[in-house]
Design a protein around this nucleic acid. Structure first.
Lengths: 158, 158
DNA sequence: GCCTATTAGTTGACGCTTCAAATCATTTAT
DNA sequence: ATAAATGATTTGAAGCGTCAACTAATAGGC
């Protein structure tokens, strides 16, 4: 009755699970060791660093970090305690909170990015030809859309 | 100085992260709701169910579950409390532990698998043509090997 | 304009994962 | 043989993520 997976599908499903489970663990040690950051924390700082004014609404930041608002809120609290991020009220919507990178936070990613990118390059991209990068990018797109159907981009700040 | 990622690489890296972060969350709700299991717990039971004698050494099971021994040990303790798994001493090596599926554990996956597979099929495979499944399988192989270099298969039971 | 529904975000408790330490068995070196 | 090193696993504490409950503000309906 159930539509079982065929051998190739089964293999791909196991592979996707393995990659999902193990990828962070492959990249994180360098970050932890050299910068004392988790991959998620780095990602949050990186998203802020690329935003206009180095600031984003919490909801937008949550979206760009693939995270729940709750998880983000906890992490931002920690990042705030380190002095890398500040929260402020959004002038146009009293419910909203703007998270901004501090100068110290900016300095932190500037210092951290090169080592991290080098490590990502070695682990993820060195074993792939540029053609394969393109193909993977295309093939993974429908998967991502299916996993995360309302991946609409939220308007920035307000 | 650092070899930065080009736009396509950057896009793929963000996509891989998003998939790694969001995939479990797409599949898990059905499992939690219909069977009270996390994806990881299901996976552990499934690996046992397919092993000879429905039994595996903890180390082998950890490998097949992409997990640390510590994480597995905690989970097996919980699964034991539910009556789905038992631990026993390995006759050939006094340090090792064999985890085995109980009849109740077997009944649990038999009952759970169809719904879970259907959900995986809908979310992961329906949006992919069979040709794309093959391609993804091939393209992700080098990635997995790079992420998890010593992915040697451990000899089964002893 | 008011009442309700919705939206943005925070909080605390609980559960799971990680990490380091500990236990006990086996293997290796001498 | 015996000590030291390695290997398999467990354990408890600490940290992180999830979930449900809560606050506060805006939007909608009439």
């Amino acid at each position: 009755m159930p539509r079982w997976l065929n051998p190739t599908e089964r293999e791909l499903w196991l592979k996707l699970n393995a990659i999902a489970t193990l990828m962070a663990g492959a990249v994180e040690p360098q970050l932890k060791r050299d910068a004392g950051l988790s991959l998620f924390e780095y990602h949050v700082l990186a998203m802020l660093s690329e935003a206009p004014d180095r600031s984003l609404l919490m909801s937008n930041l949550a979206f760009h970090s693939n995270s729940s608002l709750s998880r983000l809120s906890h992490v931002v609290t920690r990042l705030e305690k380190q002095g890398w991020v500040t929260r402020s009220a959004c002038p146009s919507d009293g419910r909203a909170t703007i998270a901004s990178l501090t100068p110290e936070g900016w300095a932190k990613i500037v210092a951290t990015a090169p080592g991290h990118v080098e490590s990502v390059r070695e682990i993820i991209f060195d074993p792939l030809a540029s053609e394969q990068v393109e193909q993977l990018n295309d093939l993974l797109q429908p998967l991502l859309e299916s996993i995360d159907p309302d991946r609409r981009v939220i308007s920035n700040q307000e």
